[in-house]
C-alpha cells in the first residue's frame, strides 16, 4: 500500500512539472483535475490498512470529497471562467516556459534535499510525502508569481493547496477529518469567488491580465 502511495505521489510530482511546462490553459486545468483525482486515492493508500471503522468513514468522506471537489467541481468552474473570459493560452508568461521548467526542476531537487534533512516527530508514512508536498507548495508559488493570466494563477493556488493537502496526510491520525472537509469547502468557495471575479473583470475590461489589474477603476 505504501508503494501505491509513493506511486501516486510520483504522479503528482510529474503532473506539477507538466503543468509548469504547458502553455494551454485547458491542459493546465485538466492536469490539475487529474492531480486532484490522484490525490483522492492517497488517504486510502496510506491509511486504509490500519484504520479503525470510525476512521474508515473519515477516509471515505475525505476521498469522495476530494474527488468531487478537486477533480469535478473546481475544473468545471474554471472551464466556465475560461469560456466566459475567452482565453486559450498563457501568451507571455513573465518567466519563459523553458526557464520556469528549469526552476521547477531545481525546486524538485531542493524539495528532495529538504525532505532528507528535515526531522519529523513521527516519521512520514510514505517516503515521498514530504518531497511531493514541498514540490506542490513551491511550484504553486512559482505559478502564482510568474503567470500573467488570472486563470493560471488559480491553477497555481490549487497546486499549492494540493501540496498542503499532502502534508496534512501525515497527520491523519491526529487531525479530525472534519478539518480536512472544511478546508475543501474553503477551497471550493475560494475558486468560486475567483471565478466570479474573473468573469466580472473580463466582462468589464476585456482582459484578465494580472499586470494591468492596478489600472482598474470602478
Amino acid at each position: 500500500m505504501i508503494q501505491d502511495a509513493n506511486f501516486i505521489l510520483l504522479i503528482v510530482i510529474v503532473l506539477d512539472l507538466y503543468i509548469v511546462s504547458s502553455s494551454r490553459l485547458d491542459t493546465c486545468v485538466n492536469a490539475t483535475a487529474l492531480q486532484g483525482a490522484a490525490l483522492a486515492f492517497l488517504p486510502f493508500a496510506l491509511w486504509w490498512k490500519q484504520a479503525s471503522s470510525g476512521e474508515m468513514i473519515g477516509l471515505l468522506l475525505i476521498g469522495a470529497g476530494t474527488f468531487v471537489v478537486k477533480s469535478l467541481l473546481i475544473p468545471f468552474l474554471i472551464f466556465r471562467s475560461i469560456r466566459e473570459a475567452n482565453v486559450r493560452r498563457e501568451v507571455e508568461p513573465s518567466i519563459s516556459l523553458h526557464f520556469s521548467l528549469f526552476t521547477a526542476a531545481v525546486f524538485v531537487a531542493g524539495s528532495f534535499w529538504m525532505a532528507s534533512i528535515v526531522v519529523f516527530p513521527q516519521s512520514p508514512p510514505a517516503s515521498l510525502i514530504v518531497p511531493a508536498a514541498f514540490v506542490g507548495v513551491l511550484v504553486g508559488f512559482l505559478l502564482l508569481v510568474s503567470r500573467q493570466k488570472a486563470i493560471t494563477q488559480v491553477v497555481g493556488y490549487l497546486i499549492l493547496e494540493n501540496g498542503i493537502f499532502i502534508f496534512g496526510q501525515i497527520l491523519f491520525k491526529e487531525l479530525p477529518f472534519i478539518v480536512e472537509l472544511g478546508i475543501l469547502l474553503d477551497l471550493l468557495v475560494g475558486v468560486l469567488v475567483m471565478g466570479i471575479a474573473i468573469n466580472h473583470i473580463s466582462r468589464q475590461f476585456d482582459h484578465i491580465d494580472v499586470n494591468r489589474l492596478d489600472e482598474l477603476k470602478g
Binding site: I13, V14, L17, Y18, S21, L97, H98, L101, F102, A104, A105, V108, A109
Partner: peptide
C-alpha cells in the same frame, strides 16, 4: 521541441 526534450531530461533527473 527543445522544451519537449528538456522535459524528458528533467524526468530523467527526477
Amino acid at each position: 521541441v527543445p522544451q519537449f526534450l528538456i522535459g524528458a531530461s528533467i524526468l530523467a533527473v527526477l
